[in-house]
Structures are given as C-alpha cells and as structure tokens.
C-alpha cells in the first residue's frame, strides 16, 4: 500500500489547510502520479486538482510531488516515491483556490506582460514570411513551453516578487520572440525589460532548469536577454 499525503483546503469549510493521509493499492504497478490521484478521487470525490491531456503537453497538472515541481501525468511513481510515501502539495508561492488548485492569475499576468505575440511592422507578404532553417532552429527549446508554471513557482525570486519579476516562464517566452527572425520589435521589447526586477531579479539559482518537465532551460534564455540588453545599451 502506497502512503499518500495530500494537501487539503476548501475555503468554504476549512479554516486552515491540512494534510490528509490516504492509502492506495497500486498492485505493484509503476503508475503515473495522476493515475494515483484519479484513484483517490474515486475514494473522495471532493479532492480538487486540474488535469486535461494526461500526456504532458497541456500543462494543467503542475504540482509539488515529494518536494519537487512537475507534471503528475508524466511522473511515474518510481521517479518520486521515497520510502513508499508520496506527498502532494499545490505549486508553491501561488494562492491556493482549493486543495491542489492554485490561482495562476499573477503567473499569466507576467506572461501577458512580455507581449507574447509576434510584432512585425512590415506588410505581410501574400505567402508566408521566409525563415531559414538556421533561424528557425533558434526557437527550439523556447516555443515548446506549456505554461505549466512548474519553473516560476520553483523560483525563489518569483516567490518574493511575483508582481515585478517576470519569472523564468515569462522570460523564456520573452526570449522566444526576441530570438525570432520575423519579429521587428526587439528594441521595444528590451526597453520593457530593463528595470531592476523584470529580468535582473534572476539570481541564477536554476531551479527552473531542474524542474522543467519539457527539459527547457529558462536560465540560458535569461542570460541571452541580458546579453541583448548589454549589446543594446553599450
């Protein structure tokens, strides 16, 4: 029997959050954490969590599993369970709505802030804008972000200043557009990032890199933004 300890909080009935213990019979199978949660939800239908694609591409089910952020649907028990125990908590640093569901507004706000869309002031051609495979390759490792918030909620700098520091996810997307050969707004984008918080609150802790379920590297992207800012200002 797997011991599962889950963070519970329902604002309608609970005055404070608490940890609830469950026992799950996995019959020795190496299930994904999400499968275990589905089994628990059958025991207790009031357990709340988000999920959608169940294959690691939609980014709904970011959660803290035995102390580390990740997606429950692509995290096998064998990767996280220690001493037959699994502790599930909501993503740290964001307000809890209920149980394992967090309020992600501030995370999305930081995403919107970096103008996450292509800006190009030249008239669009009748066909596609051409882009060399080499230029396209520069977007690899950037565009794949699924906005699961595992990185930003693992980042101490984001914990302390979620309203001012864009956070690793938003910065990865900021660089995705800076790096796009089709985008013409580099200067405007950079001028929005040159304050003491937006980019520079990154202290290179690299928790973001350690937890990203898609294997992306926001720290490297932040380094590239700094280089661009420096090149632009000197």
């Amino acid at each position: 029997m797997l011991q599962v300890s889950i963070y519970r909080y329902n604002p309608e009935t609970d005055t404070a959050p608490y940890m609830q213990e469950f026992q799950v019979d996995t019959q020795g199978r190496d299930l994904m954490v999400l499968n275990v949660m589905e089994m628990l939800k059958e025991q207790d239908s009031s357990l709340a969590y988000r999920r959608s694609c169940r294959e690691g591409v939609c980014g709904s089910d970011g959660m803290n599993m035995n102390g580390k952020n990740g997606l429950t649907c692509v995290t096998a028990l064998s990767e996280v369970v220690k001493d037959n125990k699994l502790v599930l908590r909501p993503l740290p640093g964001l307000p809890v709505v209920r149980d394992l569901v967090v309020d992600m507004s501030i995370f999305y706000k930081q995403y919107e802030r970096i103008q996450p869309y292509l800006l190009n002031d030249t008239p669009a051609p009748a066909i596609e804008r051409l882009q060399s495979p080499e230029d396209r390759d520069k977007l690899d490792g950037l565009y794949e972000c699924i906005l699961c918030a595992c990185c930003s909620t693992a980042c101490p700098s984001f914990w302390w200043n979620p309203d001012k520091f864009v956070g690793p996810s938003g910065l990865l997307q900021a660089y995705r557009f800076l790096a796009d050969s089709r985008d013409t707004a580099t200067k405007e984008r950079l001028s929005e990032l040159d304050d003491p918080f937006a980019v520079f609150r990154c202290r290179g802790i690299m928790n973001c890199v350690a937890v990203c379920p898609k294997g992306l590297n926001p720290t490297r992207a932040i380094g590239k933004i700094r280089e661009l800012l420096l090149a632009n200002a000197t």
Binding site: Y117, L118, A124, L130, Q131, S132, P133, L139
Partner: peptide, 13 residues
C-alpha cells in the same frame, strides 16, 4: 504571420 513557428525547408518556406 501571427508567428506560428513552422519548421522550414532550406529555401525558407
């Protein structure tokens, strides 16, 4: 034109 990062052929298409 909206920015979808399509893969490319050598001629940029």
């Amino acid at each position: 034109h909206m920015g979808l990062p399509f893969s490319r052929f050598d001629n940029g298409r």
